[in-house]
């Protein structure tokens, strides 16, 4: 599913080279729920950008679904993101004046899916993400934080991606709504989705099956999560 081999990433700022990732290797199997954990400055955001095909590594290889995506052009990366990856962000990134449906349908616009099919898929995704159907035509800025994040999760699901990549998805939520969002990810994972969660919080990471600790651009620890927290949706 995901295989990264000895990935490095070096940024050049005013002739000063900063190596953010110093040779990272791991693989994620289909249907796994992995948390990548580390403090800020550890390189986890950079790792997420590479995993999300938003950026390419300086060296090393990244295989997504068996395809080497470590050296693709911008447009090819856009195709990979569109077809294989669903993003969930800390700050939701919804279009504020657009309806819930419009937000969820948006990725399908770029896949040229016809309108009726878009609506069907968007509704199915919203149901999977656990949003009640009386909210489907609300404007997204009229929703609560938890509801917004569920809309964002539905948007990440709508293209039926191989990988859901969540970057601090509970960072802007209180514990209770955060738990609901984490429970939603667990439910999606049970239904077969591969989920990679990036976080700096131990508590959030403990909802995953496996935790990869990263610090100063290298993996400190990569092990199965023995005391996994399991949340159930009501």
């Amino acid at each position: 599913m995901i295989e990264i081999r000895n990935i490095t990433k070096t940024y050049l700022n005013d002739d000063v080279e900063t190596q953010v990732l110093k040779g990272v290797s791991f693989s994620v199997k289909d249907g796994e729920f992995v948390a990548i954990m580390g403090p800020s400055g550890s390189g986890k955001s950079t790792l997420m950008h590479i995993l999300g095909a938003l950026d390419t590594p300086t060296s090393g290889q990244y295989f997504l679904d068996g395809k080497d995506v470590s050296d693709l052009s911008d447009d090819e990366l856009a195709d990979i993101r569109r077809s294989k990856i669903g993003f969930v962000f800390q700050s939701f990134n919804l279009l504020p004046r657009a309806t819930v449906m419009r937000n969820v349908e948006m990725p399908l616009l770029y896949s040229r899916v016809p309108k009726e099919e878009r609506e069907e898929k968007a509704k199915a995704a919203l149901i999977s993400a656990g949003l009640s159907n009386d909210r489907f035509y609300h404007l997204s800025n009229q929703l609560s934080g938890g509801q917004m994040q569920r809309v964002a999760i539905a948007r990440s699901l709508v293209n039926d991606p191989a990988l859901i990549l969540a970057d601090e998805p509970t960072g802007n939520l209180d514990t209770k709504t955060g738990d609901i969002v984490l429970a939603t990810f667990q439910k999606l994972n049970e239904s077969g989705k591969t989920v990679v969660l990036i976080t700096h919080e131990q508590y959030v990471a403990e909802h995953a099956e496996r935790i990869i600790h990263i610090r100063d651009g290298v993996i400190l620890e990569d092990k199965k999560n023995e005391n996994r927290l399991v949340k159930k949706l009501q």
Binding site: G52, L54, D74, D75, A78, D79, R81, R82, S83, F87, F89, N93, L95, M106, P107, Y110, S111, R155, N159
Partner: peptide, 14 residues
Amino acid sequence: REIGLRKAIGAKSR
């Protein structure tokens, strides 16, 4: 941010 989001979900530069 909207542009960033659109690109993240697969919009090409074009």
